[in-house]
Computed example of a mutant assay.
Amino acid sequence: MKSIKPYKKSFFFRTLLISILCIHTIHSQTEDTNDLESWNSITVRYKPNKKWSFELQEQLRLDENISEISEYFTQLGIERSITKNFDFGVGLRFIRENDNEGSIQGYENHFRFHLDAMYKHKLKRFTLKYRLRYQNKNDLSISTSEGDYAKQNIRFKAGMEYNFKNWKLDPKFSAELFNRFQKEDDDNGFSKIRLTLGTDYKFKKLGKLGLFYRIEKDLNETIPETTNIIGLKYIYTIKSK
């Protein structure tokens, strides 16, 4: 089979990038607030066999045009392969969230867990992935009697990756929709959409480095916000011999 010609790679990248920029331009014309954030993470993953995967992640997020710490967290994740194409996962996250608004400011402790059902399949050089996630987040400093209720979301994510022959920077694109539901909240329903374009580079025996650009848009806020996010991630995988 012949190699993919360079102009085809360039055309593929331009098409994805132009799509995201067009969406961003349309949103910017109607938004009252915008922000630029940076999400950076380091993950160590352990795979004892083909069915199980364990990972520990540390992540730092900056907001206010990358000038202040938004939050940082530690997350433990476990995935179990059920079949060749279907996986199930669970994640536990302890969050230190920076509250810089209102009369009482400072870092707050939050706990979040999620449950994932994931399916993937290949179509020629495309890898298509789908994920359904239930997410539950709670403020540990406020009790239910004080008016705190867990923030719950159902999230659906669909993504694709294209495998160029003899090229390591394969592009990835995904779209994710958030559906919020929680007690005594008039804003329940579809709350946010997230679009992501990125790529990964694998180093031999040294792990994988990823870079992405993300657009996140509120859907049902009185004053909606569009957040632009640039992210850098490093993943090191340990496999049992």
Rank of each mutant, 00 (worst) to 15 (best):
S3F: 05
S3D: 09
Y7L: 14
K8D: 08
K8T: 10
F11K: 12
F12L: 15
L16W: 01
L17C: 06
L17K: 05
L21P: 00
C22M: 11
I23C: 03
T25V: 07
H27E: 15
L36F: 11
L36P: 03
W39V: 03
W39C: 01
V44D: 02
V44W: 05
R45G: 05
R45E: 10
Y46F: 14
P48V: 01
N49Q: 07
K50P: 00
K50L: 10
K51V: 07
W52I: 05
S53M: 14
E58T: 14
D63I: 10
E64D: 15
N65S: 12
I66A: 02
I66C: 06
S67T: 12
E68V: 07
E71F: 12
F73V: 04
F73S: 07
F73Q: 08
G77N: 13
T83F: 05
K84V: 06
F86H: 08
G91K: 10
R93F: 10
R93Q: 13
D99M: 08
D99A: 08
G102Q: 06
G106E: 03
Y107W: 05
E108Q: 13
F111V: 03
F111T: 01
R112F: 03
K120C: 04
H121D: 11
L123Q: 05
L123G: 00
K124V: 03
L132K: 04
Q135W: 02
Q135N: 08
N136Y: 04
L140R: 02
S141V: 07
S141D: 15
S141L: 09
I142V: 15
S143Q: 11
E146A: 12
K157S: 10
E161I: 12
N163R: 13
F164G: 01
F164N: 01
K165M: 09
K165Q: 14
K168Q: 14
D170E: 08
F173S: 11
F173P: 03
S174P: 10
S174R: 10
E176A: 06
F178G: 03
R180A: 10
E184C: 05
E184P: 00
D185Y: 08
G189F: 04
F190E: 02
K192H: 07
G198A: 03
T199S: 02
T199C: 03
Y201C: 07
F203Q: 05
F203N: 06
K204R: 11
K204F: 08
K204L: 09
L206M: 15
G207E: 02
F212A: 10
Y213I: 00
Y213S: 07
R214W: 04
I215L: 15
E216W: 01
E216N: 14
N228K: 09
G231C: 01
Y234P: 01
Y234L: 02
Y236A: 00
T237I: 06
